[in-house]
C-alpha cells in the first residue's frame, strides 16, 4: 500500500505508471523490425519523458524543471524524430526490415537485464528521498535495454536510435534520483545529442556511398587492410 500524505496524492501513482510506460516502449523497440516504427516509438518515449518531467516539476516546485521539460518536448518529441524521418526518407530506408537475432531470445535477455537493473537500484532507492526514487530501477533498465538494442541491431540508423533511447533513459534516471541535472549541463547534453545526430547523419551517407548499404557488418572488412 502506498503512503498518501503528500500534497498531490495522484502524482506518485502517475509517475510510476509513466515509468512503466517507458519500460514498455523500450521492450516494444526491442521487438520491432521496421526502422520507421522505431522512430515513432522514440518520439513516444520522449513524450512520456516530457509528461513525467512536467509532473516532477509540478510536485517539486522547481522552475528549472519546467525549462528542462520544454527542452525535452522540443528536442526529443519534435526535432530529433523529424531529423530521423528526413534521414530515413533520404536514404530510402523506409521499408527496411532488419533480420534480427531470434526475438524471443533477445526478449528473455532483456528480462534478465530488467531483473539485474531492479536488483542494482534497490539499495540506491532506499537511500534517495525524492518522490520518484522507486523509478530509478526502471530508468536503469531502460538504459540497459537500449544497450541491448544497439548490440543486437546491425543497421547504422537503428544503432543511433538505440543511442538516443539510452540518452532518454539517462535523463529519466537523472530526474528520478536528483530532480534533474543543473541547467547548464542539461543544455550541454541536449546540444551534444543534436550535434551527434547531425554528424551521424552525415556518416550514414558516407557509409552508404562506400558500401551501398547501411549494414555496419561491412565495416568489419576494413580491419584487414
Amino acid at each position: 500500500m502506498r503512503t498518501l500524505e503528500r500534497p498531490f496524492p495522484g502524482t506518485d501513482t502517475a509517475l510510476n505508471i509513466l515509468a512503466a510506460c517507458l519500460l514498455l516502449i523500450s521492450f516494444a523497440m526491442l521487438s520491432r523490425r521496421r526502422t520507421q516504427r522505431l522512430v515513432t516509438l522514440l518520439a513516444w518515449q520522449g513524450m512520456v519523458l516530457f509528461v513525467s518531467t512536467l509532473l516532477v516539476a509540478h510536485s517539486s516546485g522547481r522552475v528549472e524543471m519546467y525549462y528542462s521539460a520544454a527542452l525535452t518536448l522540443l528536442l526529443k518529441v519534435i526535432v530529433l524524430p523529424l531529423i530521423l524521418h528526413y534521414l530515413i526518407n533520404r536514404l530510402g530506408a523506409q521499408w527496411d526490415t532488419e533480420t534480427l537475432v531470434n526475438i524471443p531470445a533477445v526478449m528473455l535477455a532483456g528480462l534478465v537485464l530488467v531483473i539485474f537493473a531492479f536488483g542494482l537500484a534497490q539499495p540506491v532507492s532506499v537511500l534517495a528521498t525524492t518522490i520518484t526514487r522507486h523509478t530509478l530501477g526502471i530508468a536503469l533498465a531502460v538504459i540497459l535495454l537500449s544497450f541491448l538494442m544497439m548490440i543486437t541491431r546491425r543497421k547504422a540508423i537503428t544503432q543511433v536510435i538505440g543511442f538516443l533511447a539510452m540518452e532518454n533513459g539517462l535523463f529519466f534516471a537523472a530526474t528520478s534520483t536528483t530532480y534533474g541535472m543543473p541547467m547548464i549541463i542539461e543544455l550541454g547534453i541536449a546540444l551534444d545529442v543534436l550535434v551527434g545526430v547531425f554528424i551521424l547523419g552525415i556518416f550514414f551517407f558516407q557509409i552508404r556511398e562506400q558500401f551501398d548499404s547501411l549494414d555496419l557488418h561491412h565495416l568489419e572488412a576494413l580491419k584487414e587492410d
Binding site: 510510476n16 521492450f27 528480462l111 523509478t135
Partner: peptide, 12 residues
C-alpha cells in the same frame, strides 16, 4: 509482458 508486470509490481 506478464512477467514484467510481476517485476514492476515487486519493485514499485
Amino acid at each position: 509482458l506478464a512477467v514484467l508486470g510481476l517485476l514492476v509490481h515487486l519493485l514499485l
